[in-house]
Amino acid sequence: MNLNRLTTSFFLLVILGLVACGPSQETKDLQLKAKQMFGALPNKMPGSENDTEALISLGKKLYFETKLSQNNTQSCNSCHNVEGKAAGVDNLPTSPGAFGKSGDRNSPTVLNAGFHFAQFWDGRAPDLKAQAKGPILNPGEMAMPSEAEVIKKLKAEADYPALFAKAFPDAKDALTYDNLAGAIAAFERTLVSSSRFDDFVNGDHKALSPEEQAGLNTFVASGCSSCHNGNLFGGNSYRKIGQVNAYGTTDLGRFNVTKDPSDKFFFKVPSLRNVALTGPYFHDGKVASLEEAVKKMAYHQLGQTMKDEDTTKIVKFLGSLSDKTKTN
């Protein structure tokens, strides 16, 4: 056997060895646990099966339309930035409105929002369409005086009447406030993120590093998954902030919607999808770093003083939940 054949045979053996060397039993067990406890995020949001190309295109144009604000300075994207590497937020503690005054709550990410069981921190809107109607008329946000004024403004534009007619071909009067919100919701239903965690759950054992796998184990063992569960890692329940140790806030949360005293200080559990990209954190935006957020949640929600090494592990894992297009 000559040298070339020996070299070829050697490399073939190496390749076969690498192929044969699959995931460890621990990794396979963790993949199964992750699939059972959380699961991968679906590729499409509920309702998107009825969204046409014309409707989505109109919704995207409206999402970036500053004329939906009273002084033509602010769009949906101003607070929920989806351009480039932005992860559906403005990364501010609270967002300034069209006239500069900041609101009381942190702007949550619009990425994957259509998977949530309700919208806003207090759940006052049941779905994306209802949510889209709010900020445009909110005096502290886009500050338009009425639905009628919004429609009057859009009808004065050269392109919107035809675009609405195309997106809503069966409507007698297509350019309505309800249809405006429906179009924005259709665009938002396209904002589905895909992460390395999903790849891991779907069978790619190399998608998470050993450190990230250790972080996932710590995340579950520490009790974080008692609130941050399901394929969104949250977004599916209300919980009291400070359920073990009190959290200092004057915001009454869900109570402002229901007027039920038992709902005081209850907020929608935020999804941890893209959490490494969406700081600052909590409903008030007062926590700057993800490390601090993890420690505070452990203390206020679970009654734990989390060790630095466990915090580091969990933060490492949470990075695997980021949209791959926003991190590459």
Rank of each mutant, 00 (worst) to 15 (best):
K295F: 05
A276C: 05
I136C: 03
D198N: 07
M144I: 00
Y238Q: 04
L32E: 10
S193M: 04
L58E: 00
F117Y: 07
T325S: 15
T7Q: 07
T278G: 02
N217I: 02
E65C: 07
D122N: 15
Q119R: 08
F99V: 12
K316P: 03
A132R: 02
V150G: 06
T66I: 09
T325A: 12
P280L: 06
P145E: 13
K155P: 00
T311F: 11
T190M: 07
S107Y: 01
T312N: 08
L41G: 06
D173A: 09
K286D: 02
T325I: 05
G253A: 03
K313W: 07
A20N: 10
G39H: 07
R124C: 04
D198W: 05
T8Y: 12
T250Y: 04
R105H: 10
T250I: 11
R189V: 01
V19M: 15
S146C: 13
C224G: 07
F233Q: 01
F187R: 04
V315M: 05
S195Y: 07
A174W: 03
N106I: 03
K326W: 10
T278A: 02
F168T: 04
I15T: 13
G100H: 14
A98D: 12
P145M: 09
F233D: 00
K155F: 02
Q213T: 02
S289I: 11
F266I: 00
N236L: 05
C227I: 01
A298P: 03
F168N: 06
L16C: 14
T258R: 04
E309W: 08
M306I: 06
S262W: 09
P108D: 01
A156Q: 11
H228G: 03
R189W: 00
F164L: 03
N2Y: 06
I56P: 08
L154R: 01
G59D: 09
L68S: 02
K206R: 12
A167P: 07
H205P: 05
G234W: 07
G203N: 11
S194M: 05
E49A: 13
K28P: 00
K307Y: 03
